[in-house]
Write a protein that binds this DNA or RNA. Structure first.
Lengths: 216, 216
DNA sequence: ACCGTGCTGTTACAACTGTCACATCAGGAG
DNA sequence: CTCCTGATGTGACAGTTGTAACAGCACGGT
């Protein structure tokens, strides 16, 4: 178990004492797919170091629509945990596991101790928090200024592997902050233009030249 | 000058050695209103502790529209400075002074030293960064799910003092991420409904019951 | 083979937005 | 007072988006 942690968190592993502390105080826990991890407004008691699986962090509006803020994977910390603990505030968003997730949970108090003591974990948390912050600002710009078809295009390019994306229209809508019908409509239009090929639960990108996003 | 810094940054002032260091290495500087402080993509060389005045942090889209992410005032640090320095990345947004600004500038290297050494400044920066992050996430939710009239309503309530807001429609549009015409149109409609009274460069809120935002 | 559930396609429609193109208007500089 | 500039008011319009309301389809389970 030590090996997994050190492999995934090289910046922390640089200090073996720190790793030892984390392992001593941390609790290993698994969550099945689609488990709610926390809700907006909750207080924060632990910080999670992800060993495997993915978590989706999102906001939801009154009408039931959702928008994904960012995702975290192995080697990430759920930075909102850290953020809440360090500013003693509550969660500003929701989080749900996308797949099965294995994580090492560290109690808030222990985390604060380690933050006070070890530069490695401070730097790790700071830079992760900064990165997420930048990402969310970029997302805000997207949402504020770009049309849904452009955003969907970029989404497909980013999310697809080997030009294939396996996801329902509803799931895509929840990531983009729109409704299922809108996604279906736009995808169908892209299919008519020969850009994608649609099937149940799958989208295949065809005409890459039209989809390529400059600057990514 | 010491007194001003300690008065505005009580969390830092708790440690007099820290304050001494900041003053030793910091440079006092004034910026006139409407001075660009940094641009998206710039590298970051200093961190600013605001003594007076206000700075607007915003993103701009291709079409020339802008949206304000948040503002910083006396007692704040431009947290993006810290964020960039600590994650060695570039600015993810733009910043401009709204009024004349007096600030204490601390070189990046000195800031890193102080962050390594003093828990007070770490906690200060962490909690400020966390707060801004929450704010931007809340803003994202707003932009993704609310109509412009609702957002304008909330904006007016938040920004007005004694039910009066002195600003041009263009400035409001730049804060909200829309165009001047849209703001003019919505404001005029609100005036017809008796909610506000418009004049050049000023908006007076009349019917507070209609404007009150729950939860603020 | 049959059913039920969840996913997708589609039509219609009302709102909301962003833009263009002007017309006015207020207030300061000379 | 007169002129200029920046601020506002508006009408027209095309596009985009969100919703509701269904129809049809795919696939797994029995």
């Amino acid at each position: 178990m030590t090996s997994k942690l050190t492999a995934l968190f090289p910046n922390l592993a640089a200090n073996s004492t720190l790793i030892k502390h984390i392992l001593e105080k941390g609790i290993n826990q698994s969550f099945p797919a689609a488990t709610p991890i926390y809700w907006e407004g909750d207080a924060c008691s632990h910080i999670a170091f992800l060993l495997s699986g993915e978590i989706r962090v999102y906001k939801s509006g009154q009408t039931g629509r959702e928008i994904t803020l960012y995702e975290i994977g192995p080697g990430d910390t759920c930075i909102l945990n850290a953020s809440c603990i360090l500013s003693s505030s509550n969660y500003p968003a929701n989080a749900v596991t996308r797949s099965q997730v294995d994580a090492l949970l560290l109690p808030a108090r222990e985390f604060q101790k380690l933050m006070a003591e070890y530069a490695e974990i401070r730097n790790f948390v700071f830079s992760l928090l900064s990165m997420r912050f930048s990402e969310v600002m970029a997302l805000l710009e997207e949402v504020a200024f770009n049309r849904m078809d452009e955003r969907l295009n970029e989404y497909l390019v980013e999310k697809s592997e080997n030009n294939l994306l396996e996801a329902t229209h509803q799931a895509i809508a929840n990531d983009l902050g729109t409704s299922r019908e809108v996604v279906s409509r736009l995808l169908k239009e892209m299919e008519r233009q020969g850009k994608v090929q649609l099937a149940r639960n799958s989208i295949r990108l065809l005409d890459q030249s039209n989809l390529t996003v400059s600057g990514d």
